[in-house]
Design a protein around this nucleic acid. Structure first.
Lengths: 132, 132
DNA sequence: TTGCTTGCAAATGATTTGCACTGCT
DNA sequence: AGCAGTGCAAATCATTTGCAAGCAA
């Protein structure tokens, strides 16, 4: 991992690969369930470290308890389908053309507001197939 | 308000007008600070009711503690500039043309995924003028 | 008078932290 | 040796809830 003194320990590897196994953001409970021997305090601590290291990202869900996923630089840029009924979150990729137009427009907008844009976050809210 | 048996009580009016006074999403702490005589349990309870009544919306912030704002049907559709340094959230309106294209594209996308789209949420992440 | 509201205090649940200990390097 | 990582239990913070009393329709 590197820069500072963080080590890429066994636990951290396991956490990352556990998250990687899912095709969508994972909650703490699920992770604990998979990594049975890992105490939750360690999970939390490691997730924080991994976040700072830019390896994982925390996704805000309306449901309590945050969800975690691999950082975009590992998975590619994507957005989320958020089911407002069951709280399920799934990844989607929007067409490049749209993404491009969006970026251009948002950059212009941000500039006008004196805001230095880093990236954007786009969620589609609605009902998943199950909850329709 | 109406449909069910919810009443538009004094406290609720005060909460709504307190939120309305801000030009941006407000945190619980700020609200309590303005509505000094209101116990926080009542604040929480009333915010929940107001949310269900479609009057206020809860905005997820990376910082702990949610932020609240008036529902879009009262303020108009808008998005957020989120400062990743100080956590400040400010409203922005994006050009109609873009909004329109976005909606069209997202609707198509959602349909393809078997997801029934209700609305979208778009945040611009970066640094506000102060934190640049 | 029936049912929604309120306050208060206590309960919850998610996340964080202190501390002593283990393990890399 | 010296710093980073770990477990556990206790602490913290935001939010929720039970209950008895107040108020509006």
């Amino acid at each position: 991992m590197g820069k500072c003194g963080q080590r890429y320990t066994q636990s951290r590897k396991e956490i990352v690969s556990a998250i990687a196994k899912y095709a969508q953001p994972v909650g703490i409970a699920d992770l604990l369930n998979v990594l049975k021997e890992l105490p939750q305090s360690s999970l939390y601590r490691n997730l924080t470290v991994l976040q700072e290291a830019g390896v994982v990202t925390r996704v805000m869900s309306s449901q309590d308890g945050g969800l975690y996923e691999l950082a975009e630089r590992l998975t590619g840029h994507h957005h989320h389908l958020v089911c407002s009924v069951c709280g399920d979150v799934r990844d989607v990729v929007v067409p490049d053309a749209l993404e491009h137009d969006l970026d251009a427009a948002l950059l212009r907008l941000a500039k006008r507001e004196g805001f230095s844009l880093d990236h954007h976050r786009l969620d589609l809210i609605g009902r998943c197939a199950k909850c329709s």
